[in-house]
Design a protein around this nucleic acid. Sequence first.
DNA 1: CTGAACCGGT
DNA 2: ACCGGTTCAG
Lengths: 266, 266
Amino acid sequence: MLELRLVQGSLLKKVLEAIKDLVNDANFDCSSTGFSLQAMDSSHVALVALLLRSEGFEHYRCDRNISMGMNLNNMSKMLKCAGNDDIITIKADDGSDTVTFMFESPTQDKIADFEMKLMDIDSEHLGIPEAEYHAIVRMPSSEFARICKDLSSIGDTVVISVSKEGVKFSTRGDIGTANIVCRQNTTVDKPEEATVIEMNEPVSLTFALRYMNSFTKATPLSSSVTISLSNELPVVVEYKIAEMGYIRFYLAPKIEEDEDETKPQV
Amino acid sequence: MLELRLVQGSLLKKVLEAIKDLVNDANFDCSSTGFSLQAMDSSHVALVALLLRSEGFEHYRCDRNISMGMNLNNMSKMLKCAGNDDIITIKADDGSDTVTFMFESPTQDKIADFEMKLMDIDSEHLGIPEAEYHAIVRMPSSEFARICKDLSSIGDTVVISVSKEGVKFSTRGDIGTANIVCRQNTTVDKPEEATVIEMNEPVSLTFALRYMNSFTKATPLSSSVTISLSNELPVVVEYKIAEMGYIRFYLAPKIEEDEDETKPQV
DNA sequence: CTGAACCGGT
DNA sequence: ACCGGTTCAG
């Protein structure tokens, strides 16, 4: 028996908005620790990892570990039926092949339940090793989203370089080139507006903007984003989810900056 | 060497929004006087003239006259990457076949540079004679835009007539006719809300609404617009650009008000 | 001016 | 699904 009550239901709505365009079907794994998901995107290039810790739920009951395969598009359709202030409860009976989402309006005068069929999904749960990163950049998530969007009007890939000067986002396309440099800036009113650059070693890596722009769908989840970079390692783009966990996107760098931009490389 | 620093970068963004749909490619001419452009629209019917005087720039360095051919669509793409309160600097080295747009965020913690290829464009720089106009109408630009939009849902051409009564905008179409009369009105809170009609002689001219509606893309540049009319002369629709200059659109009147509305006449 | 919500178009 | 434009509130 599984029953997870999330007071801030809008979090779950935003999580689905953030990943449903990237991943079609995925297993949600539920254990006493929390509610989590790990999945490759449909073209098998990027990886999404979500964690919502059990402590972030008002009630958290999960009698035994369970993996629930869901079609994220359908799940998102159902969650769209929840109000932004609704309390969302996720329920599943042992051995059942369905999951139920229950939405309670804040005033308790509307209660909805939506039942969705589960599906069997081959999950290849990768152990993601904790790595040391050459550089970690934290910046306002809206600024990162704006930069990725702007650059994709010029080119298809972005080179992210971290040096003492700051972090530089560069692209090149038919109509010209673009470079955007953000300097460290901690003298701001609110800590989430800061740009903080931790650099152990300079690093410069190339990524497909298409995926970066997908990742920025998670912007509503957090006002800041953390970008962790190491040569040869996938970049990690992380949005913290207040009090609960995180959503992380992994994307392997393009090995060479060649002119053939069309086929993403793993 | 050319280096023009414009503190209110949004002006340049708005200028491009105003002309990029009318003109594909154009030469920007830079001299010690200012930064200017003159170009026919792609169907060779209307003419755009832009002037940004050097005094309006924070720094203005232009060692020698230079004409820079730009694709306005590409230029507009790049300027869209500037924030609305960014400072924009236009740079070009002597003999270079590129131009660089530099965007500085107000807080200086983000600096972007966009480099764009220049192109060779045959420019037919017309001397536009200063003319005496039979009538000059100044009115709120938003009102003029609204009138042109409204009339184009009825007909394809507008007859603009100035008499002692005021200025009348008329159209006729399959579904009926429309006349909008604006009287002089100077008793307003703000001078830019006034409608001022200077008439030496009554005048009545017919224009294609399609072009008028293009011209009103410049509405964000100025709260008022000036329409100068003389029989047989192209109308001038002018938006002043605060402290810097203007953008003017010229359009020849249609000679007769015939029923064939489809083909614009020069 | 930014952010969110909404809308229509493509 | 994405994008641009618009609007409204903060």
